[in-house]
Amino acid sequence: MNATEVMDDQINKKTSKVKNFFRKLSRSWTGMLGFGIIVLLLFLSIFGEWIAPYDPMDAPLSKGLLPPMTDGHILGTDQLGRDILSRIIVGARVSVIIGVATAVLAGLIGTIVGVIAGYFRGWVDVVLMRIVDVTLSFPFILLVLVINAIIGTGLTNIIISLAVAGWVIFARVIRSEVLALREKEFITAAIATGVSKFEILVRHILPNIFTPIIILASLQIGTYIIAEASVSFLGFGVQPPEPAWGNMLNEGKDYIFSSWWLITFPGIAIIITALGVNFFGDWLRDTLDPDLKGE
């Protein structure tokens, strides 16, 4: 086998990995469904403005509170006459950005803390884990609201407050993964080879916790999307008139008895998204880490 053949071998492996992914995905209908919803969501968040039939900010007051399927408004209009379908489509972007950005930020902080606590043990571990315990003892939403109230509303701030309240889950899980890894024989083998502590961390520990991080992040995204909606519903978070599913619920709640469509459709969008992300996360966990599979 010469160099180019080795390269070919690697390329073949890459393509077969993609193939393998879809073959495995095709065996689970929940995984497929979840994956489909995620793809749709990403698509909407990128091209939403071009797909939306109306301008989501355009508010012809005369057309307010039209029920679904009237005047070309498939899902009806809100109290200001804005097209609900268009607002849901464009609002998907906020959900995707918040879900992904928070998962990345919280995952990053949590992983760093978890790795330090799990790998170095001792008093560092004790201090960090007490911080985690205290944070976890607050209800998640309450903590998000408090932080949000302190640092102010808006997209960036809601991401920050979600991440500050959410990193602890990552820290907990990653710490226990690192603790288990430390005792693995291949780590002892690396020490016996003479590998330094820092290199063991980078070359042996980190690559092996990548899978649990991805799985956890994918499962957490759903939580963050719902949390954002709840916070926006309570009037914090993303501020109107910027379309976001949470503040659509907030604005629609006054019309709950007269115009049901104002809150029903954003609600369904949130449910479908959370469900899809969780389906996919569950499938990912079962596929990547069969040991964790609950019976």
Binding site: E185, F186, T188, A190, A192, H204, P207, N208, F210
Partner: peptide, 16 residues
Amino acid sequence: LQMVFQDPYASLNPKM
């Protein structure tokens, strides 16, 4: 000074 381990499944890093 080197070492050979008992369990060939546990003593090699699966990601390398």
